[in-house]
């Protein structure tokens, strides 16, 4: 029997203003699986991946990632877990504009306190994996949308996480760059990463037809197929 790498048990999230973003979610995601979380804006996709990434905590329920009950971890331990186990690609990329591609990527390794040559080797590998090595010394504000996206991918995988989470990754990309991005995602899967994509872009369903799709509506899982 396959062991889940992500387990959500009776998870609810209510924000301080009383909005119920997630309502009693139960979900399992398995190792090396790629899944799409789809749903309209405001359905709870981003909240859900925020909980899986350890960026937020549930109001109720248990979130277990990579064998660790992350919803029970104290903040400092959670930060440490996230640095080692999860890579996140944000919708707006979340890059530091005035730093170079290389600096943006190596910055995420600082908390791991790796030796310099090991860190540099990892950055080179990540840039190769995301096909952005040729722009290593370019500042982010000089990059196109697609290049920024690839830089964000390199930064997400540089700490060798078991799970890569993408939040609306193609929202700022044209069709050609979106296709390139999906090709890169398939590459991540082949290297053993579990990939979770929150999106309402239909291109994923067209170009990744054989993966599991979970539809979220009003904070509840409406259906899961694939």
């Amino acid at each position: 029997m396959k062991k889940p790498i992500v387990t959500l048990k009776d998870v609810s999230k209510i924000f301080d203003n009383g909005t119920k973003a997630l309502d009693n979610i139960n979900l399992q995601i398995f190792k090396n699986e790629t899944i799409i979380l789809s749903g309209v804006s405001g359905s709870g996709k981003t909240t859900l991946i925020g909980l899986i990434a350890g960026l937020d905590r549930p109001t109720e329920g248990l979130v277990e990632v990579d064998g660790v009950k992350i919803s029970k971890l104290p903040q400092i331990e959670l930060d440490s877990f996230r640095q080692k186990s999860v890579g996140v690609i944000f919708q707006d990329f979340g890059l530091i504009e005035y730093l170079t591609v290389y600096e943006n990527i190596i910055a995420s390794l600082i908390p791991l306190r790796l030796e310099r040559d090991i860190a540099e080797r990892r950055v080179q590998e990540a840039m190769r994996e995301a096909n952005i090595s040729h722009k290593a010394n370019s500042r982010v504000y000089h990059l196109s949308g697609g290049e920024k996206q690839r830089c964000a991918i390199a930064r997400a995988v540089v700490n060798r996480p078991n799970i890569v989470i993408c939040d609306e990754p193609t929202a700022n990309l044209d069709l050609e760059n979106s296709k390139q991005f999906i090709k890169l995602l398939n590459g991540l899967k082949s290297k053993g990463h579990t990939v979770i994509i929150a999106t309402h872009d239909p291109i994923f369903e067209r170009l990744m037809p054989n993966i599991r799709k979970i539809t979220i509506s009003n904070g509840k899982i409406e259906n899961s197929y694939g």
Partner: peptide, 17 residues
């Protein structure tokens, strides 16, 4: 009760921080 995952336990954990 650390084994619980209900609202109160989550709130207590936050309060401990």
């Amino acid at each position: 009760d650390f084994n619980k995952t209900d609202k109160r336990q989550h709130r207590l954990e936050k309060n401990s921080w």
